[in-house]
């Protein structure tokens, strides 16, 4: 799975992650304070300049932004028809601006730096005893690690269906896929505990491992 991070050396790339995330948060609030087409238009222009400065290129940008741009267009058009031209334009400008700023942040912050930021942000929660901040990075790694495995299990199940002349149906695919995947949880959890990765922990009896 490739991240949407793009290597580069633009000004926005060199900016540390936290000010960028603060900028995004402020933008998401400020855009809803005004309905002036002029101000929103200026904001959209600024966001487009920002996104353009990253050096991603037209083709790649189109591929990245197309799905979200499309939903924004549809909704803006619907608003225009259902309500008024002004409302439609407001929706279009607000959301495309926000989309471009968000996409610019995503394209310039590598996964590792993002996880550090999230872990940092989770510290207050850890103090409240709600989460263990270090678990966040571990869980993210685990998901990325196991997606390809789930996909290859899916393909094997497909082939198994074909080999036995069975029709590929949602339930006969999903059920074994889930059971096979979740069954490896015991061993993965045991490996995490065996390697002492979560620090101080008391291992428990693994009843269904054998």
């Amino acid at each position: 799975m490739n991240s949407l991070y793009v290597e580069g050396d633009s000004f926005f790339h060199r900016l540390p992650p936290r000010p960028k995330l603060v900028l995004l948060l402020l933008a998401s609030l400020a855009l809803f304070l005004t309905r002036s087409p002029l101000l929103l238009g200026l904001a959209a222009g600024a966001a487009a300049l920002l996104y353009g400065s990253l050096g991603i290129g037209w083709r790649q940008s189109w591929i990245r932004l197309r799905p979200i741009l499309l939903t924004i267009m549809i909704v803006a058009l619907a608003t225009l028809i259902l309500n008024s031209v002004e409302d439609g334009v407001t929706v279009l400008l607000r959301l495309t601006t926000l989309m471009m700023v968000a996409a610019a942040v995503t394209a310039t912050v590598p996964i590792g730096a993002f996880i550090d930021e999230v872990t940092h942000a989770a510290w207050p929660l850890e103090r409240l005893g709600l989460v263990r901040a270090a678990d966040i990075g571990l869980s993210v790694g685990l998901v990325i690690r196991f997606v390809p495995e789930v996909v290859s299990r899916y393909q094997q199940l497909r082939q198994a269906h074909q080999a036995r002349g069975l029709k590929v149906r949602a339930t006969t695919m999903i059920v074994p896929l889930i059971i096979q995947t979740l069954k490896s949880a015991d061993e993965v959890a045991a490996a995490i505990d065996a390697r002492g990765i979560r620090g101080q922990r008391q291992a428990r009896n693994l009843e269904d491992s054998r």
Binding site: S3, L65, P67, L95, A102, A107, F114, I144, V147
Partner: peptide, 20 residues
């Protein structure tokens, strides 16, 4: 949110949280 295209249709990044 951290930039992996994990949502259907290969969507990802903070921009998905800026959609209608």
């Amino acid at each position: 949110a951290i930039g992996l295209p994990v949502l259907s249709g290969g969507r990802g990044g903070l921009a998905v949280f800026a959609a209608p």
